[in-house]
Amino acid sequence: LTVEVTLDGRRIELHGLSEEAHEILRHALERNADDKEIKKILEELRK
């Protein structure tokens, strides 16, 4: 799955996400998580 997010003013596409990762990010974006929170989530998903 692919998600497009804006971090530090740049639009980035995240490819190859699992369903779980996609859901976690989608929920964070829906509640307008800040860049710091999104980065933390991405860091966790990379593990």
Rank of each mutant, 00 (worst) to 15 (best):
E30Y: 02
R10H: 15
E43P: 00
I38L: 13
V5H: 02
D8C: 14
L45W: 08
I41R: 01
A21W: 15
E44G: 11
R31P: 02
G9D: 06
I24P: 00
L17D: 01
L17I: 07
R11V: 15
T6L: 13
H27Y: 01
L45C: 09
L42H: 01
R11T: 15
N32V: 07
L29Q: 06
E23Y: 02
E20S: 11
I12E: 06
L25H: 01
T6A: 06
K47R: 13
E13V: 15
I12Y: 05
L14G: 02
I41Q: 01
N32W: 09
A33D: 04
A28C: 05
H27F: 01
E30A: 12
I38S: 00
E13S: 10
K36Y: 13
E30W: 01
R46G: 15
E19D: 12
T2A: 07
H15F: 08
K39M: 15
E23S: 11
T2W: 09
H22R: 10
R11E: 08
D35I: 09
L42F: 05
I24E: 10
H15M: 07
H22M: 13
E44K: 11
I12Q: 05
E44A: 13
K39V: 10
K39H: 13
L14K: 01
R26L: 14
E43V: 09
E4K: 06
R11L: 14
D35C: 05
E37G: 03
L45M: 11
E30M: 07
R46L: 15
H15K: 09
N32M: 13
T6Y: 03
E13H: 10
G9A: 02
E23D: 11
I38H: 00
E43K: 09
V3C: 08
V3T: 06
H15R: 08
T2H: 09
E19R: 07
E44L: 10
L1I: 13
R31H: 14
T6S: 10
G16N: 14
R10C: 15
R46F: 15
D8S: 02
K39D: 06
I12N: 02
D34E: 09
E30H: 06
I12H: 05
A33C: 07
G16Y: 07
H27I: 11
L42A: 01
D8N: 07
L29P: 00
G9M: 01
D34T: 14
E13A: 06
E37L: 08
D8W: 00
K39L: 14
A28I: 06
T6P: 03
T6I: 15
L14A: 04
E43L: 09
A21M: 14
T2L: 05
A21L: 10
A33I: 06
E43Y: 02
E19W: 12
E23Q: 10
I12K: 02
T2I: 09
L1S: 08
I24D: 07
K39F: 12
G16Q: 06
L14D: 02
G16E: 07
L1A: 08
K36F: 14
R46V: 14
T6W: 08
T2G: 06
R26A: 09
E19Y: 12
A21F: 12
D8F: 00
H15C: 11
I41H: 01
A21R: 02
E20A: 13
L17Y: 04
L17S: 01
L29I: 13
K47Q: 13
G16V: 05
I38N: 00
G16I: 05
S18K: 04
D35P: 09
D34S: 13
D34W: 03
T6D: 08
L29F: 07
E43H: 12
I38Y: 02
A28H: 04
A28S: 03
G16H: 11
E37S: 07
I12L: 07
R46P: 06
E13M: 09
L7E: 03
K40N: 10
R31W: 06
L17A: 02
K36M: 14
N32K: 12
R46C: 15
I38C: 02
I24V: 09
I24Y: 05
L25A: 00
H27Q: 14
K47M: 14
V3G: 03
L1E: 06
T6R: 08
L14V: 14
I12G: 02
K47C: 14
K36T: 14
I12D: 03
D8A: 05
H22V: 15
E30N: 07
K39C: 07
E44V: 08
E37H: 06
A21C: 09
L7K: 04
T6G: 04
L29N: 04
L42Q: 01
L42S: 01
R11C: 12
H22Q: 10
E13P: 02
L14W: 01
A28N: 01
N32T: 06
D34L: 08
E37C: 06
L25T: 00
D34A: 09
V5C: 05
L42Y: 05
R11K: 15
E44T: 12
L45H: 04
K40T: 12
H22T: 12
K36R: 13
I24F: 04
D8L: 00
R11D: 07
E20I: 10
H27G: 15
E37N: 04
H22Y: 15
